[in-house]
Amino acid sequence: MLGQVLGGRTGSSPSGSRYFRYEVAGLSQSGETESMDYPIRSSGNAFITVPYNRMNQEMQRITRMGGKIVNIEPLN
Rank of each mutant, 00 (worst) to 15 (best):
P51M: 06
V50G: 02
G7P: 02
G67I: 01
E73W: 09
T49H: 05
R21N: 07
G44K: 06
Y52K: 04
M59L: 13
N56D: 14
A46D: 05
I48R: 03
E73M: 15
R21H: 01
P14A: 12
S28N: 12
G67Q: 00
G11V: 10
F20L: 15
E58C: 11
S30L: 13
D37H: 00
S35L: 14
Y52A: 10
Y19E: 06
F20I: 02
R61F: 05
V5F: 10
V50A: 06
P14H: 11
R9V: 12
M55W: 06
T49Y: 02
Y22D: 07
I48L: 10
P51H: 00
L6D: 04
T49R: 01
M36A: 10
Q57S: 06
N76P: 08
R41L: 08
S17K: 04
K68P: 04
V70G: 09
E32P: 04
I48G: 01
S28H: 14
N53Y: 00
R18T: 14
S13E: 13
V50C: 07
Y52N: 06
D37T: 03
S28Q: 14
P51A: 00
V70D: 04
S30Y: 02
V70H: 12
S15P: 06
Y52W: 03
G66A: 06
S15K: 13
S28W: 03
Y19K: 08
Y22M: 15
G31L: 06
G11L: 09
V70L: 09
M65T: 03
R9K: 13
R9W: 12
V5R: 06
K68E: 07
R9N: 14
V5D: 08
V5C: 10
N76T: 07
P74C: 10
Y38A: 10
R64I: 08
F47H: 08
F20Y: 15
Y19A: 00
I40Q: 04
S17Y: 10
V70T: 15
G16L: 07
G7M: 13
V24S: 02
M55Q: 01
